[in-house]
Design a protein around this nucleic acid. Structure first.
Lengths: 138, 138
DNA sequence: AGGAAACAGGATAAAATTTGTCCGATATGA
DNA sequence: TCATATCGGACAAATTTTATCCTGTTTCCT
């Protein structure tokens, strides 16, 4: 549940990509700007690619570019693409049964915290975070 | 930030201790009721003891008992006693500087999620979770 | 006084997760 | 064809989580 470096980097990378909207940047360019290992960032961008947030262009003069409008990419989208479901307590994961049979009175609290956090993350788009006026083109 | 087994066990242990209010239970009794390793639970209870939530009685017929009224023990108290500060993103920890010099637009979002989660955890006491009418005795 | 029951706390260790690294395969533009 | 990129899997280091064990100390009971 804690935001890992991967997710942190993912957000920063997407913020960078949203600056040069439409531009395609190779991983090397991004990793230099962000001053972090290219190979690690490459893995992260692959996850974002599978999630349909960025688009990869292979071959020479290839790289990554945004696939969606920055106004339609939320922090939650990025969190989920990189870390998966947002979970506060393993014991409260849907479909998994609490080890104790008796009803756990604490479950609802974890669930509420989850809902609130997810709602907050969904409220903020890359566009709003970069202070960009969200254009309406998809 | 994610709730670990330690914290989960701590909550359950304190709920058990609040059932027999005032009673002193040895770790072995608690670990049997909870069906988990005594040595692991012992470490957790030591943390709770240092935090002033439970009280240890040494020697034969010793054990642990609540030190505070269940209505004055919140989930947050337990979380903090076991896991320390509640942190959503390491980069947003107070006093630690974000690796990037530029102001990070995402910080405030993590901070807000932290505040909301802590507030939610503070709202729920052991007394309210066990459905007990919170007595007024300290 | 002596033995048994119980906590205190440090050292150790297994397992899982996080944080990377590396390399061969594949795609593509010039 | 060559240089530049991504793709994806295997590998590895560091950290955190989840414990276990052992020695020491305290206290009750006989």
């Amino acid at each position: 549940m804690k935001v890992t470096r991967e997710t942190d980097y993912a957000i920063r990378a997407v913020l960078l990509l949203s600056e040069d909207r439409g531009k395609t940047l190779p991983v090397s360019a991004l990793s230099e700007k962000m001053d972090l290992p290219r190979s690690f960032l490459a893995k992260i961008l692959q996850k974002l690619s599978r999630a349909g947030i960025v688009e990869s262009i292979r071959g020479a003069s290839g790289g990554y570019r945004l696939k969606r409008n920055p106004s339609r990419i939320s922090l939650y989208d990025l969190y989920k693409a990189v870390q998966g479901e947002f979970v506060v307590n393993e014991c409260a994961v849907e479909g998994r049964v609490c080890s104790r049979k008796e009803r756990c009175a604490v479950h609802p609290v974890w669930k509420k915290i989850e809902r609130e956090a997810v709602r907050e993350m969904k409220k903020h788009s890359i566009a709003s975070l970069s202070g960009e006026k969200s254009s309406q083109r998809s």
